[in-house]
Design a protein around this nucleic acid. Structure first.
Length: 824
RNA sequence: GCCCGGGUGGCGGAAUGGGCAGACGCAAGGGACUUAAAAUCCCUUGGGGUGCAAACCCCGUGAGAGUUCGAGUCUCUCCCCGGGCACCA
């Protein structure tokens, strides 16, 4: 009964995919009506930065994994919104434009066009009706609006800060662009430090909440852990050490219990107290040391395991616990930007202080005696010196009334005791720094601020947004350290919005991470020109239900997005304070076991593979080559297996029969087991194992691993669920098969198959028989067999009896429907 | 240095509320079809051994110890690879 059109028709991916791309567009299959949708599901993927190289296979891996999830949810009955956009501002784009000597305003839109074509070719369920680009004034008007909201709330502040300066690039670099003290782009050029006034977002205000919420949001553990470490909470105390001039030096310590062992103090070279306290005799040395350290860039100062250096200021402080005079030193191992910029040094119980004290001959006083059997960090170097011990497992010595107390008890006791003397208080310290958003660059949204001699800092009125980035022929940064926009005099010279006198615009642009910190808020509301995000739509669609992306953004993009969302929540603009309900980090793809790189010449270019194999095969192979959340190894040889699998399904679909009701209990059982397994796997992004289960099912349909003769003409009732389960992975292919099976509507309007526990159940199971834990035989028994009968069956086996012999059985272990273990 | 993740056949990888190690796929070998090749189909495939054979035995999840009737899975020590942080007091 085969029809002419279906027999002998081979699977031609190019034809199938072209047909369905067009039909999806005509039928608007992937457009979601955001207003009327009844079960909204916001499926977000990380929007790409449109590089000149085009879409990377890593992007495709990320997008496909997210798309499979979105399509799966849709088949489960959700109304899925899957938008896309382009993160098109930023230093990467600008540097590339400089390199090829083309203006970014000309270059970037071309890259975007190319990306759009590539994205369409992959078969993603994207709703192109909500595309956004961060470089469009309609978008960045609201990026600037967010800046203004934060400014009004006191969360955007201007302060002087050190920055990395590359003399070769003639510009400021982000910390991430400095490698071992050298410029990323000029490995022979050392980066130096400059002080510039810059805009900061006070993300540190939110440190505690950002940390706290990590416990309740459903995110990948790896991502949460990275954020936890990045925020870097430390509990301890802030203690005051009086100086001889009457003021205090405040220090943060996690070990207030060791305060009796603080034999000297160290301030960061930049610490303001150094100016006040340094004695005239020591001043030349101190000044010389400060010059040396400030000549170094920020990054190389941080390179660890450097030999300790420092100088004595000539000044003394008083240890509030012992009332002893202790010397004040400066050293670059103390960082101005952490804690208070000064420390109490307890050399016997801190590795850095120990090294420093030994080098400069400072007193090392033991105040913690390690508990019995606990190893010290470094043994005593000579009989007159104590060992280094940094652990908590010990008791106090040389600590007055606290002697004999454990460290754990002493921490609280000593802090409280100092607090009553007014010398300290409990304190939690965070490693997180405020977010510097100023960039002395061209390709970004101008920061909407005006400087007026009379009125000071004046925000641009919201009605005047956007502050449009002016076309600038020469957008190159120069050595002045100010933004290229400072050359656009017509643009930056404006009347003050308050007093009308001549004023000037801020010429820095904002960090590209600000563009991407709120784009997910914009997608549902792209149609509105008069508001950043519509309250009704936002309330309906956000927070994001599923966000999938790479862990390379764990601490930057994801942290900034959480911060912006939290700030907008506090300011009354959003109902929720966490933007992404569920986040999953995908793994990384390597090629033939090695990291992909241009120099290795092993970069997978998606277009080539799609041209050769088709998008569906490529998609499915990417999902098959390893566990999605761990990544995997891309090997060209592996793709053919997926193609062969699809060919087999194609064959089944084109010969399927509706007219015959054939009894196929084996196939039916496998089908229901497959539905159960695949559904569970897709829930937790177990794509590789889901595909393996589908393959197993197809093998059964084709008569493998079963005595049952199902094929070659398989009933449609066994095939339709297979086609639906395949649809998220190979959407064009599944549509074509679905049509082949006689359907006129999209397979994505079908419902995900339900499994029947009854039908999935095996009525015979194979019991493993062990003797003393070693497998000695197997018996097939009815499922649900009782222990006693199972043991009887086991003992009846020849192979088992041989090992049991006549020995008495001491014990039997029975795992229902799985195993019998006889212990003799 | 600290914090995570991971070491399983020739290869990618399955199997962790402890219970048949190697699912699924690739590659390889043998066979069928073909004038031939490709494609397709069938069989074999962790290592070693006993047996004419049906079968059976031993070893095996980075290394070593431990817990257990039973360990790839749990505990301890160590080695290697990948990622993050890195003088954070």
């Amino acid at each position: 009964m085969r029809s002419e059109s279906s027999t002998g028709r081979r699977y031609d991916p190019e034809a199938v995919e072209g047909k369905w791309r067009q039909r999806w567009e005509e039928r608007r299959t992937n457009r979601t009506d955001l207003r009327t949708a009844d079960r909204p599901y916001y499926n977000l993927m990380m929007f790409p930065y449109p590089s000149a190289e085009g879409l990377h296979v890593g992007n495709v891996f990320a997008f496909v994994g997210s798309d499979v999830h979105g399509r799966f949810r849709r088949l489960q009955g959700w109304k899925v919104f899957e938008p896309i956009g382009f993160d098109a501002f930023g230093i990467h784009s600008e540097n590339y434009a400089l390199k090829v000597d083309t203006h970014p305003a000309e270059l970037i839109p071309k890259n975007i066009d190319r990306f759009r074509e590539q994205l369409q070719r992959i078969g993603l369920m994207l709703d192109w009706g909500h595309e956004l680009r961060t470089i469009d004034p309609e978008y960045y008007a609201w990026t600037q609006w967010i800046f203004l909201q934060l400014y009004k709330a006191g969360l955007a502040v201007r302060k002087e800060a050190p920055v990395n300066w590359c003399p070769e690039c003639k510009t400021v670099l982000a910390n991430e662009q400095v490698i071992d003290g050298m410029c990323e782009r000029h490995p022979d050029t050392a980066v130096s430090q400059r002080f510039l006034a810059q805009w900061f977002f006070r993300i540190t205000e939110f440190a505690e909440r950002l940390l706290e919420n990590l416990r309740i949001i459903d995110w990948s553990d790896s991502t949460r852990l990275m954020q936890t470490n990045w925020i870097g909470e430390s509990e301890g105390a802030e203690l005051a050490f009086p100086t001889e001039s009457g003021s205090d030096i405040r220090v943060f310590t996690t070990r207030p219990d060791t305060v009796f062992g603080a034999t000297y103090m160290v301030a960061a070279p930049e610490h303001p107290v150094v100016d006040q306290l340094t004695t005239p005799e020591q001043r030349p040395l101190v000044e010389e040391y400060r010059r040396r350290t400030s000549a170094m860039d920020l990054v190389s100062r941080r390179v660890g395991e450097k030999e300790k250096t420092g100088v004595f200021t000539g000044a003394f402080c008083v240890n509030p616990a012992t009332s002893e005079r202790i010397p004040l030193w400066i050293a670059d191992y103390v960082l101005m930007e952490y804690g208070t910029g000064a420390i109490m040094a307890v050399p016997a119980h801190d590795a850095r202080d120990y090294e420093f004290a030994r080098k400069f001959g400072l007193e090392i006083r033991q105040v913690v005696k390690p508990a019995a059997g606990v190893e010290v960090d470094a043994p005593a170097p000579s009989p007159d010196l104590p060992p280094l011990f940094t652990g908590w497992d010990g008791t106090m010595v040389n600590s007055g009334e606290f002697d004999g107390m454990t460290c754990a008890d002493a921490v609280g006791a000593i802090t409280d005791w100092l607090a009553t003397k007014g010398a300290g208080m409990r304190q939690t310290q965070y490693r997180l720094h405020d977010w510097c958003i100023s960039r002395q660059r061209y390709w970004g949204p101008p920061i909407p601020i005006i400087y007026c001699d009379a009125c000071g800092i004046v925000p641009v009125p919201e009605a005047d947004l956007p502050v449009v980035l002016p076309p600038l022929e020469d957008f190159r940064p120069d050595e002045s350290g100010v933004s290229p926009l400072a050359r656009a005099e017509d643009w930056y010279r404006v009347p003050c919005p308050v007093c009308g006198s001549t004023a000037r615009r801020e010429t820095d642009v904002s960090d590209t991470f600000l563009d991407s910190a709120w784009y997910f808020l914009r997608y549902p509301s792209t149609e509105f020109a008069d508001r950043p995000f519509d309250p009704a739509l936002t309330s309906k669609w956000l927070p994001v239900d599923s966000y999938i992306g790479g862990n390379e953004h764990a601490v930057l993009h994801l942290m900034y997005s959480r911060f912006i969302t939290m700030a907008l929540h506090d300011l009354g603009h959003l109902e929720f304070e966490e933007p992404f309900t569920r986040f999953r980090a995908h793994g990384m793809i390597v090629k033939d076991g090695a990291k992909m790189s241009k120099s290795r010449g092993n970069v997978v270019i998606p277009d080539e593979y799609i041209a050769k194999w088709g998008a569906d095969t490529f998609r499915m192979y990417l999902m098959f080559l390893g566990p999605y959340q761990e990544g995997g190894d891309f090997r060209d040889e592996g793709i053919s297996g997926i193609r062969r699998f699809l060919d087999k399904v194609w064959g089944l679909a084109s010969t399927a029969r509706r007219d015959v009701e054939k009894e196929s209990p084996d196939a039916t059982r496998t089908l229901h087991q497959t539905i159960r397994g695949v559904t569970e796997d897709l829930e937790h992004l177990g794509y590789n194992t889901a595909i393996a289960k589908l393959m197993t099912y197809v093998n059964v349909l084709r008569g493998k691993g079963s005595d049952e003769d199902v094929g070659p003409e398989v009933g449609a009732e066994l095939l339709e669920p297979l086609v639906i389960m395949l649809a998220p992975l190979a959407p064009h292919f599944a549509e074509e098969c679905w049509e082949q099976l006689g359907h006129e509507t999209s397979v994505f309007d079908a419902r995900w198959p339900a499994y029947d526990e009854e039908l999935a159940r095996e009525d015979q199971v194979e019991l493993v028989i062990q003797v003393n834990g070693k497998v000695r035989g197997r018996v097939t028994v009815p499922a649900g067999i009782e222990e006693q009968s199972a043991v009887e069956r086991a003992l009846a086996e020849d192979g088992v009896r041989r090992f049991v012999d006549a020995k008495p059985i001491k014990k039997t272990v029975y795992v229902p429907d799985k195993l019998v273990n006889l212990v003799i």
